[in-house]
Simulated assay, not measured.
Amino acid sequence: MKRFLGSIAILVAAATLPLAAQETDLPQPEKPPEEQCRPDIGCVTNLPLPRYVSLKGSEGNARRGPGLTHRVDWVFTRAGMPLKITAEYENWRRVEDFEGAGGWVHYSLLSGVRTVMVTLDMAEFHDDPDDGSPVIAQAEVGVIGRVQECLPEWCRITLDGARGWVRKAAIWGVKPDETID
């Protein structure tokens, strides 16, 4: 009988615990994707954020949230367009273009191939990373090129088969202090 009464006392004590003590066993609501990871490291890939990638195909939907149920806010329509990844959630990456437009894109639409977009009208491409070297080409705003390498102030870019060095100030798609071999 004493054993039975002891069990009842334990049950009564558990039932009268403060609500806060009982809530620790309940599942907590999931935080929004932006709050789950460190701001400088992607929680899915462990790669640095922000980082640059490019659009793999000729079209990619940017959605309001990470999932197919979210509405499409923006459609990227240029293959190779450089994009900046600012967040990760499962198979989704939050990206933005050089104007800041974007949204959540499925990772399969992105490529690790580094590209840049010319942001200075008639940007000069030099033979060497030196303003005094011969200009071998000029490019209009919006031209996309593939990154070959980058020094602290210059990047070697391929544009339609031609290669040249351009100042980082004339392009978007690399960090100002980034070097690429």
Rank of each mutant, 00 (worst) to 15 (best):
V95S: 06
D131P: 01
R71H: 15
A101S: 12
I171G: 06
S133D: 08
G67W: 01
E30H: 02
I157E: 02
L55Q: 12
V72R: 11
T16C: 08
G65D: 13
T24Q: 14
G67E: 05
V147M: 03
W172H: 04
K31P: 06
S108C: 03
G161P: 09
Y107R: 12
F76Y: 13
C37W: 00
W165T: 01
L68V: 15
F76V: 09
V95M: 01
D160A: 14
K168A: 08
G57Y: 13
V135S: 05
L110I: 08
L47C: 11
L49V: 02
T158H: 01
G102F: 02
T77R: 15
K31V: 00
W154Y: 06
H70F: 15
R78A: 13
Y107I: 14
G173F: 08
G102Q: 02
T86E: 15
D97H: 06
E34G: 01
D130S: 05
V12A: 14
A9N: 04
A162K: 11
L17N: 06
E30M: 03
A20V: 10
E149C: 12
E30F: 00
Y107K: 13
E153T: 11
V12I: 15
R114H: 04
V116S: 05
V174S: 09
K84N: 06
R63G: 04
V166G: 08
A101V: 10
H126M: 03
A62C: 14
T158R: 08
